[in-house]
Every structure is written in C-alpha cells, then in structure tokens.
C-alpha cells in the first residue's frame, strides 16, 4: 500500500460530486484514483479525461485515474471518500470491505441515511469494512462550484483527529474549498440528513407563497428543531447550525437547477399537486427522494427520543398522505409557542 505524501486520494463513485472532487484535488497536484462500476465511465475518464454524463465538458487533470478494480483503489489510496447514493452505499461498502484494512481512512460524503434500516453511513462502513478510522464530509459544496473554482466549504467530521488531518492535507484547497473539522460525527451525519428532510418543508412553503416573514419563522423553527434532535442523539446542538445542517439547507433551498430528485422540488411538487388537483409526486415508479426517507426516520427518531419535532411531523403527514400541504402549514402556524 502506498503511504505518506505519495498516497492518492481514493474516491468511490464517479457521480457528479465524486468526479468534481477528484478534479479539484487532481488540479492541486495530488494523485486521485476514482473507482466506478461503469466500465464506459472508467474508459472515458482514462482516455478522454472527461465524465460527460456527469460534468459535461469539464476536463479532468491527468492526476485523476479511474479504475473498475477496488483493490487498485485500496492499494494506492489511504484516505477514501465514498460519494455514491445511499441506495448503493452498502453494496459498495461491502465490496470495499474486501480490499481495505485497518490502515485505511474512510470518509463518506452522503448526506442521507442508508438502506431499509436507515443507518448512518458511518455505521454502514463500520459494519461492512474492517476500517475503523471513519468520517463524513458534508456541507454546501455543489459540484458546479467545485469544478468552477468558486468559493466552497465543507466540514469533515471524525472522532479521529488523524482522519480530519489527512482530509485537510488532501481536501483543504483554498480558495476553491475550505475544509473545516469536527469530532461530532453523528451530529454531522444527522444534520446533513435532516437538512435534506427540511427542504421538503421549504419547497411546500415556497410553492404555497408563504412570503418572507413566515419563511423566516420556518427557518428559525427548523434550526431549533434540528438542534434539539442532534443534541438528543448525543451530538453537539451547534452542529446543526454549521455547514452540515444550516449550510446544506440553505444551498438546497436556493434558486438552482430543477432537480426533481431534490427534497425542495419534491415539496414544491406536493403543494402544486394540491393546488392543481393532480396526483402527488413519487408515482410512476419514480425513486423516492432521499429527503423523504430522511423525514420519515427523523420523525421516528424524534418520537423515540421524546423530542418535539412539529416541522418534521408536518412534512411526514403530507408525504404519507395524512394531510394536505395547506393543512400542514396551518397546523404548523397553530403550534403552541414554548420557551425558545
């Protein structure tokens, strides 16, 4: 295994975020090995230095090499960033588990929960691999910002200081990206997941035309609720107001590309379907957005922890068909005010 400064950054998943991160790190002069399970993508990255399906005409530096063999990734890299969807996270982690060992540091960049048992991704990595030095990357770093060299920031959370040190060595590349650090791994993972869930509420609120005043109230109530939940699982409340929570929430509820898989657009579609009398989104075998699953588990978590979560409750009631968006909004505005 290559170690020290010669070690490459490993990236699992040649999606838009993984490829953009690889491009950024490669441009900074570090070697990157990108593991994709799609042979055509591997071929394209290695031969043409592009990944057009994900990043258009962006040219990847020579330092980025793709592979379909996870053993090559494990041999060349010590820090590995997993950037795949939560749906395939467990399978990819299992395959990775066969080739990594206790020396590897695994950091995921998945702002969601995995599988039917809605585990935190670090738990999945713990279960599927022998690696113990685990962490998470989260924050409002969009692929377009990364490849465009615009200012971006993320947080790397791990209970192991050496993981965040190594992540900073490879990924802290100002001014393109600043990497903050935290030891609050569960807090960052939950904050990232919850922020996705809350985007549904903002999508509904905006489609209902709630206006800036009620929207500001919603922001502050979401922050309070997110902090309560993060603290209740043993994380630090302030983690929710950082890059992984509030940062993520703001970027995902800002004007941007019309991503139907986003929680924000899903929320908009819910409210619009009520107004138009059309069918709610999510039909026709469409894959459920990560945000929907995050909202459901958030509600269950809140109940188990004995925490009030009126915003998540309202979102879950709408997505499960127990309330219409206008009813949920009315119920939220009726919520009894308590000590802040």
């Amino acid at each position: 295994m290559v170690t020290g400064d010669r070690a490459a950054l490993g990236v699992v998943g040649a999606g838009s975020f993984g490829t953009a991160l690889a491009a950024l790190v490669g441009r900074a002069g570090h070697q990157v090995v990108l593991w994709s399970t799609t042979p055509e993508v591997v071929e394209e990255v290695n031969r043409e230095h592009t990944n057009r399906g994900r990043l258009g005409d962006v040219v990847l530096p020579d330092a980025v090499r793709a592979t379909s063999d996870p053993a090559e990734l494990a041999e060349r890299a010590r820090l590995v960033v997993m950037a795949v969807s939560s749906v395939e996270a467990r399978d990819r982690a299992r395959a990775l588990g066969a080739v990594v060992d206790g020396r590897h540091m695994l950091v995921h960049a998945i702002g969601a929960l995995a599988g039917p048992d809605v585990a935190r991704l670090s738990q999945v990595l713990h279960e599927e691999t022998p690696a113990r030095r685990l962490g998470a990357l989260a924050g409002p770093a969009l692929p377009a910002d990364l490849v465009g060299g615009r200012f971006a920031a993320m947080v790397c959370a791990s209970p192991f200081d050496e993981v965040t040190r190594e992540a900073r060595r490879l990924l802290n590349l100002p001014p393109a990206i600043r990497l903050y650090t935290s030891r609050d791994l569960p807090g960052v993972e939950l904050a990232a997941s919850l922020s996705g869930a809350y985007t549904i509420a903002f999508g509904m609120a905006d489609a209902l035309g709630m206006g800036p005043g009620p929207r500001a109230v919603l922001v502050s109530r979401v922050v309070a609720e997110g902090q309560r939940l993060v603290a209740a699982i043993g994380g630090e409340a302030r983690t929710f107001t950082g890059l992984a929570g509030l940062g993520n929430l703001l970027v995902r509820t800002s004007p941007g590309p019309d991503d139907r898989a986003s929680g924000y657009q899903f929320g908009r579609a819910l409210a619009q379907s009520e107004a138009s009398g059309g069918p709610p989104p999510g039909g026709d075998g469409e894959r459920e957005p990560e945000a929907v699953r995050a909202a459901r588990v958030g509600v269950r978590l809140a109940r188990r922890l004995g925490q009030r979560a009126p915003v998540l409750d309202a979102v879950a009631r709408v997505i499960d068909g127990h309330a219409r968006p206008t009813q949920a909004a009315a119920a939220l505005s009726d919520t009894v005010a308590m000590a802040e």
Binding site: M1, T3, G4, G97, G102, T129, E166
Partner: peptide, 19 residues
C-alpha cells in the same frame, strides 16, 4: 475478524498516515 468473518491484522490500526 471483521463482521463478515474476514481476518484482520490488528496491527494495521496502529499505523499513522505515513504508514
């Protein structure tokens, strides 16, 4: 062994970033 029964060398947990 890990949870899949694969053998692990426990000494690998003690190496720093430079190995």
């Amino acid at each position: 062994v890990d949870r899949h029964g694969r053998r692990i060398d426990p000494a690998t947990y003690l190496a720093d970033a430079a190995g």
